[in-house]
């Protein structure tokens, strides 16, 4: 069976000014099998959110294809996408900016139901109450405005809104990074719960590799607009093949202070290179602890480094996290 959503050779550029472009994604191939949960990790500016938005066709790629349920939707205009929209939904990073401050929570949930499902006022309200219950909010929340809710509650509303139209694909764009630490685990657990209950296909965008890998089957690591590693979540975390992934794994502290103190960590030198002028060869080589001459000349292709696990490195697997 074909994957639910897929991008092939995806290139996304943003116009910064006359003749100036930022290439946010540069040749990304990624597939989301039906019912799978894929975590997309990488540092700020790596193109994670851009990939999520392009997959939902909120952005139009400069090159490459976007496929949804076997349909090539790359060139569809908004009018043509509209009937497809209910099947692909987004949970936003910022639960403050993504809810209309002038709209009561109930109406934010009922409007799409009334438009797409043709539900009457009472039916839509009943459905909204169910949705609120699903995400662990009291039914009375429907009458509230977003400013009366906490960050965690707002994100629950955001999830309820995304679930309202019973999508097949859910893209969660750093759904917990704006929340306080205690709330994060709850929201991640909620996403995992609804995903399993509804057999959703999930793209979880995160910069926290440890958190993301807990609730996903597969992990893709994005670096400067390119996938540098992709594989089963457990393998990527335990046996990272790309030195950048190894550094990300190594950056996760161990909760046990004795182990943490004795642990050697891979510390990357310097800032990530500017995506406006990516370095030649392997884009990671200026910061790579194991870079050699070839890395500055030739860009390594993404290839199988271990069974089921792909990495874009000339020396895949040589650097293990301490």
């Amino acid at each position: 069976m074909s994957p639910l959503a897929e991008v092939r050779g995806l290139v996304v550029r943003f116009r910064l000014g006359p003749g100036r472009h930022l290439t946010a994604l540069d040749g990304v191939d990624l597939a989301l099998p039906r019912g799978a949960a894929l975590a997309l990790v990488g540092e700020s500016g790596s193109g994670k959110s851009t990939l999520g938005l392009t997959l939902l066709r909120a952005l139009r790629p400069a090159a490459g294809r976007v496929l949804f349920d076997g349909m090539d939707v790359t060139d569809w205009d908004e009018r043509r996408l509209r009937p497809l929209r209910p099947r692909m939904q987004l949970v936003f990073q910022d639960p403050y900016a993504s809810l209309d401050p002038h709209l009561a929570v109930g109406r934010a949930l009922t409007e799409p139901l009334r438009v797409h499902r043709g539900l009457g006022r009472a039916d839509a309200a009943a459905r909204a109450a169910e949705l609120l219950e699903t995400v662990g909010l009291p039914a009375g929340t429907a009458a509230r405005r977003p400013h009366q809710l906490s960050g965690g509650q707002r994100q629950r509303v955001g999830i309820a809104r995304a679930l309202a139209l019973e999508p097949d694909l859910l893209v969660a764009d750093e759904p917990v990074s704006a929340l306080d630490v205690a709330t994060r685990a709850q929201i991640v657990a909620l996403l995992d719960e609804v995903r399993q209950a509804r057999r959703l296909t999930l793209l979880l965008i995160a910069h926290d590799l440890a958190l993301a890998s807990q609730v996903s089957d597969r992990v893709a690591v994005l670096h400067l607009g390119q996938v540098v590693e992709e594989g089963p979540a457990a393998d990527v975390v335990r046996r990272p093949q790309h030195p950048y992934t190894a550094a990300l794994v190594s950056a996760t502290p161990d909760p046990d202070p004795r182990i943490e103190r004795g642990r050697s960590r891979i510390v990357l030198r310097g800032e990530p290179p500017s995506p406006l002028a990516p370095p030649p060869g392997c884009r990671f080589h200026p910061r790579c602890p194991i870079a050699r001459d070839v890395c500055a000349r030739a860009a390594p292709p993404l290839r199988e480094a271990r069974p089921g696990q792909r990495a874009a490195c000339h020396f895949a697997g040589e650097l293990a996290p301490g």
Binding site: S98, D100, H102, V115
Partner: peptide
């Protein structure tokens, strides 16, 4: 973002303009 959210919910231009934008 909440205007993008309305668009991603598949609401038509008129609904987005007279809804979140006009509000």
């Amino acid at each position: 973002e909440y205007v993008l959210a309305a668009r991603l919910l598949g609401l038509g231009d008129a609904r987005v303009l007279l809804g979140p934008v006009l509000r």
